[in-house]
């Protein structure tokens, strides 16, 4: 499974809370539990970029995980 590139705007939609999804991959949910609030409080380009980097890395490093794969389908279709 390929993980969409960081430049895909959907990543930023997730970390800013502009779009919310019911996700399954636990590590990503724990990460998002922190970063969405951080980014929402201060949605600077740097904060958004840093959050996208972290979220992308989690999915890229866990690309063989069934729940991570399901999340990618949920987020990106």
């Amino acid at each position: 499974m390929s993980v969409p590139p960081k430049s895909n705007p959907r990543w930023a939609d997730v970390v800013t809370g502009r779009k919310t999804y019911t996700l399954k991959f636990l590590a990503a949910k724990i990460l998002l539990g922190r970063v969405v609030r951080t980014v929402s409080a201060a949605p600077t380009p740097e904060n958004v970029r840093d959050a996208v980097d972290q979220l992308f890395a989690i999915y890229e490093k866990n690309a063989s995980s069934p729940s991570a794969q399901e999340d990618i389908k949920i987020i990106f279709g």
Partner: peptide, 11 residues
């Protein structure tokens, strides 16, 4: 723990 470098990069 939640702020460790590369948090969640493996189970």
């Amino acid at each position: 723990g939640p702020n460790y470098k590369d948090f969640g990069n493996r189970p």
